[in-house]
């Protein structure tokens, strides 16, 4: 936990609160080892949120970026 706090530059209580919420949501799993608690991400838990529209949203946002670049270069 301490290392995570150092990494994130966020206070320890804030980190533990976030991890608690992530754990409740099943997005992170914790494992106690002596005084230390290890957390690991549960990628599969997020699956139901992602359907084809979230996939294509990323696709189209990138295409809009390319389109804007192209428009800048056109007619120069």
């Amino acid at each position: 936990m301490g290392a995570l706090t150092a990494q994130a530059g966020v206070s320890q209580p804030a980190v533990s609160k976030h991890l608690g919420l992530l754990r409740q949501a099943g997005l992170v799993r914790d494992r106690h080892e002596g005084r230390q608690t290890h957390y690991s991400a549960q990628l599969g838990a997020l699956a139901p949120l992602m359907d084809w529209t979230s996939e294509m949203a990323g696709f189209w946002e990138a295409r809009f970026d390319h389109l804007e670049d192209l428009l800048k270069r056109m007619d120069q």
Binding site: L49, M50, D51, W52, S54, E55
Partner: peptide, 8 residues
């Protein structure tokens, strides 16, 4: 749900 494929 769309598991595989492009960056998400």
């Amino acid at each position: 749900p769309y598991y595989q494929g492009a960056t998400v």
